[in-house]
Nucleic acid binder design. Structure first.
Lengths: 107, 107
DNA sequence: AGAATATATGAGAATATGTTCATATATTAA
DNA sequence: TTAATATATGAACATATTCTCATATATTCT
């Protein structure tokens, strides 16, 4: 039997663009440092130095990771003088992170 | 003010083990090849060769990735002669994958 | 046992990733 | 304008990842 002309999109192969977006999204969540940063930002906004101190990381490392997250529009920032306050900027992704943390904890 | 003894677990720092499980889970979903394999298995079980053919991948590459996914208990298999039929084995993770694919498609 | 088929495994190569170090840029205050 | 503070950036290094190639293992059939 041939493929039905009513085949749903959910059964089609993944197109390049979708695949790229999905893999990039999960890549953002696959590194312990980025997870810790996002988790911190899930509670409230933090400056770069606050993040570095709270998580015992170098300022440069934090800045690099924030750039990564910013490029994917997972975080945003507001400026206050020389200080940049970062906060999360993607509710869907933060929700998925929270779901998975809860799931991991219950085992 | 000191930390309340009623502080919710959701506000605590992430412990090592949770962090490890979460990062490993997302790492599994961060590679295009593994995403394509899991997506295929979300539809129905497939043998190693079927996966390789459908996705135009080498048999060895597929086998390596399946081992990775098997170690995380994201897939399982049943044997039929010399053929191994793989299927998904973690509804939570498959649900997250589906959510994220849908989210990516709608943009 | 030997041949055929399906899958797994290990080593090696190419590429990607994450951190550190040094330094650049931007904002504010004196 | 100069100094002080906060953050960003680029290069270099160490490690991790993913694929390919060759070969090993497992099952079935004759």
């Amino acid at each position: 039997m041939e493929e039905s002309k009513y085949t749903q999109s959910v059964d089609k192969d993944l197109d390049e663009e979708t695949l790229f977006i999905v893999s990039q999204t999960f890549k953002a969540l696959s590194d312990p440092t980025r997870i810790r940063i996002l988790y911190l930002l899930s509670q409230k906004e933090h400056s770069v130095n606050e993040i570095a101190e709270k998580l015992s990381l170098g300022q440069s490392a934090v800045s690099h990771q924030l750039r990564f997250l910013k490029n994917l529009r997972l975080v945003k920032y507001r400026r206050a003088g020389t200080t940049l306050y970062y906060s999360h900027d993607d509710k869907h992704v933060m929700n998925i992170l929270k779901q998975t943390i809860d799931h991991a904890r219950h085992h």
